[in-house]
Each structure stands twice: as structure tokens, then as C-alpha cells.
Amino acid sequence: MNRKASDSRTVGLTDGMRAVGMSLVLSLSPTVRLSAQNTVDPLTIRFSAMTAVSGYEQAMADSLVALFPGQAAKDRVGNVVLTLGRGAPKRLVACPLDEPGYVVGNVTDEGYLTLRRVGRVTQPLFDQQNLEGHRVTLFGLKGPVPGVTAVRSTHLTRGRPMLAEAAFTVDNAYVDVGATGPAEVEALGLPVLTPVAALKQPHAYGGGLLAAPVAGRRAACAALAAAVQAKPRVTGMVVVAFTVQSLQASNAGLESVKRLAGPFTDVSVVSVPSQFEGTPVETVALADARAAMQRIVEWMGGRQ
């Protein structure tokens, strides 16, 4: 089981440099080290419980703005952006907020909701493992609404031809929120385009491992947020961006930040290695998130 980076673009340090930089940070800045231990883990868990369907990241973005009151703001695309330091060089460090998910595509006469997938998906079992027979959350006009995705009853398949061996896809998904018709769905505040995602229940196991959908992305953003909270010494100006729509073809969020807030002499996208990427149990080691935070702090201080 090989670990895969959740994003191929990293902060850009070699392992040797990381080790040297880490020891320097640990010896020179014990407060940063303590902060990392105290904030990265809970932030990783907290972020892993959040949902940000690609293009519909507003709620998580608002939570991030609230995390840095008076410091962070959303740009016109929806990225959460803040600036540390001033002068040159002007650099950008970013992490992607968004995740693949769904929106409501239609409502049936019986009160079921059908779905359209949003965002690029590379895992062929994504729909099956996230939807079929599992809890989902619909982020409606009146707040989150719990639902489940229908699955054939085991008992009623007995003595009948087996289920198709082709994997379950979103086109077979009927979301049951307990409604008996379109009027009840409307009363629940669930119109077409309501974002939908698998239930987020971050699951700690194995002494320092955390399993959750898009855990690698969430750990990367947690490391970046914790680095900002640590109030690091910054060389020049560093623009910090939590970007949206990375899973759309244009990677619109990151490209917008580059154009709206740039130009930058260096751009780094934070990543944390993960196992089982793209599954509901994508797993990160919390120690890796803490290490990423330390690397970000070093990078902000000008160490390459």
C-alpha cells in the first residue's frame, strides 16, 4: 500500500532540506512546534468533517474567513485569501478546498432526488462507495438535511438474477430524505442544484491515522491554516489562499488568485500524503500534517 501525494505539486523542499529546516525550526521556535501539535490535529479533524463540493465551497470558505477574523476575505471567485508580511519577494502558498460531490438534478413524483456529479473523479468506484446504501447530507436552503441513497434490498434479490456486476453509478442514485413527494422536498429547501455529499464522519484509527473523504486535501489546508495561526516570521510578502474549483477543468480558483493578487515569484501548493485516495476512507497520518505545517512555516520564513 503505497502512499500517494494528494497533489503532485508540493511545497518544494528536498527531504534533506526538510530535515535541516525542521531541526532549525524546532530549535529556534519552540512556540511554533507547540502550536503545530496543538492546532494541526484538531484542524485536520474539523476540516475533514466539512463539505465543499467543487464550485459550492461557500460554507467552508465562510468558516475559514471566520477562523481569521479581520485578516481573511473571499475574493470575487470565492477563494479565501489573506496576506502576511510586506515587500518583496511576493509569493503565494495555497491549498485546494474543493472536493468531488454532487448536486440535486431532479425530484421524482415520489419525492426522491436524483443527482448530477460535480468535479473531476478518478476513482471508478467513487459513486458506489460514497452513495449506494449510505448516508448523504444535502446542503439545502434551510440548512443541512440528512438523507440516504437507495439500494436494492438484499432479501428481494434472492432467487432472482444477480445484481448487475457493473459498478453502481450516479445515474442509479435515488436520494431518500423521507419525503413523500415534491412538495415536501420543496418544504425542506432542496431545489435543483442543492449540493450533496457523503456523510462526513472523520474516523481516527491506528494511533495517529485519520480516515475521511478527501482527508489529504483537508490535512493540507489544516496545515496551512495552522501555519498562519502560528504567526510565523515572514520574509517579504506571502499571500495565503484557500482555493476553490480546483477540480474543474480550468483550476479556476488558483489561476484567479495568480492573476488577481499576483504576480508571484514563487507559487507553492501544499500537499499531505494520503493512502486510499478518492475513497471514503482516504487516510492521512496526523504526523504528516504536522510536518507539512512546519515546512510551510519554514517556507514562509524564506527557507527554500
Binding site: E132, V151, P280
Partner: peptide, 24 residues
């Protein structure tokens, strides 16, 4: 009897005499 696909890639709980152990 059940579809094993419904458990694949999901959180797990192992129930032991010493309490529940988390896994996947």
C-alpha cells in the same frame, strides 16, 4: 447475508472484550 460492496472502503469497528477498536 448482505452485499459486501456496502462495507468496502468504510469505517470499521472491531468489538473486543477490551472495548471497540477503530479501523477501516
Amino acid at each position: 447475508g448482505f452485499f459486501s460492496s456496502l462495507f468496502e472502503a468504510q469505517p470499521a469497528l472491531v468489538h473486543t472484550t477490551h472495548g471497540d477498536v477503530s479501523g477501516i
